[in-house]
């Protein structure tokens, strides 16, 4: 009984419960056929959402008003640049990866400069920088139809015992980030700033350095996602990042991170990413039309956020 109580108090538990409920509903509908395959596919796709989700989580945790809206365009730019640099050759793989990460770092620096030097609210800063990044991606990647290097394509789609290799790597990474969040000075600084920026500054926390690192981290993770996603889906496309705008924010909120800042939860992101993919899969298996699918996705996300992410009305 106490175990149940401690478990129900964990903020991440809801995303996992939702994930299991949806998977079970799908499995019952199909009579259990292909349920294991669904899990494999979900792990693959959820990894991409979770990668950007982790970056978004650190940004959101630094306090109200902090959101990175430039993630989709960073994904597009990084994918386009990497594909063009590598031009389908295995030998260029390290160069492509470096170029991709370089894009991410540049975006992070740009976002931070807009926020810090021009004092633009982060949402507007990342929004306007996303305009610039997207334009660059469009101009640079026009008519881009380059296949990813075979090695990258193999790596991103490889499986061991039905588990995507990418998901295994990500699990290790997520564990590392969880340690960073909870056990390092940087991670604790992020949470402290999210709770009260003024107090954090007065306590001697290096606020500006932490904010810079946070926006850089988010952009670099988005770039990584773009790089891997281009490999996974057989080439970069300009709109491949689009769904990650809602995706990255939704998994953070559903996963139990407080939008008011100062409270972050990494395991929840993993559950929430699976939940998001399984939700779409479920609606697909039920044979819903495109319109119904969109409406249901939206309503379920809003409903889950109302239940899991809401707080008491302002008093």
């Amino acid at each position: 009984m106490t175990a149940f109580k401690t478990l129900s108090e964990k903020p991440w538990i809801w995303s996992f419960l939702g994930m299991i409920a949806i998977w079970a509903a799908t499995a019952i509908y199909t009579g259990g056929k292909g349920s294991a395959d669904v899990i494999t596919a979900a792990l693959s796709f959820a990894t991409f959402t979770a990668i950007v989700g982790v970056g978004q989580m650190f940004v959101i945790a630094t306090g109200p008003g902090n959101v990175d809206l430039s993630i989709p365009s960073t994904i597009a730019l990084s994918g386009a640049v990497a594909m063009k640099v590598m031009d389908g050759s295995n030998a260029m793989l390290p160069v492509g990866a470096a170029a991709s990460l370089g894009c991410g770092l540049a975006v992070g620096v740009l976002n931070y400069l807009l926020i810090r030097v021009l004092r633009i609210p982060p949402i507007i800063a990342t929004l306007s920088s996303s305009f610039l990044i997207l334009s660059t991606a469009i101009a640079y990647g026009r008519g881009l139809k380059i296949k990813p290097p075979p090695l990258l394509a193999e790596f991103t789609t490889a499986q061991v015992w039905g588990l995507p290799v990418l998901a295994l790597f990500f699990a290790v990474f997520a564990f590392g980030m969880s340690v960073v969040l909870n056990r390092t000075i940087y991670g604790r600084s992020v949470l402290a700033i999210g709770q009260n920026m003024r107090a954090a500054r007065l306590a001697g926390i290096k606020v500006e350095r932490t904010r810079f690192l946070t926006y850089a981290l988010s952009a670099v993770l988005a770039a990584t996602c773009g790089f891997l996603l281009a490999g996974f889906s057989g080439g970069a496309s300009l709109n491949m990042g689009q769904e990650y705008l809602l995706g990255s924010i939704a998994v953070v909120v559903i996963g139990g991170t407080s939008v008011a800042g100062g409270k972050a939860n990494l395991p929840g992101i993993l559950g929430a990413s699976m939940f998001m993919f399984l939700l779409v899969t479920m609606l697909n298996t039920f044979g819903a039309s495109a319109g119904v699918r969109l409406v249901m996705t939206g309503l379920i996300i809003v409903a889950v956020i109302t239940i899991a992410g809401g707080e008491d009305a302002q008093s």
């Binding site: 924010i249 939704a250 039309s289 319109g291 409406v295 939206g298 309503l299 809401g310 009305a313």
Partner: peptide
């Protein structure tokens, strides 16, 4: 529910789009 408007409206954008497609 003191919800973040960004997330709620992002979710609702799917609902509006779905409605329009229907």
């Amino acid at each position: 529910r003191n919800l973040p408007s960004i997330v709620v409206t992002l979710g609702m954008s799917f609902v509006w789009l779905g409605g329009a497609v229907l």
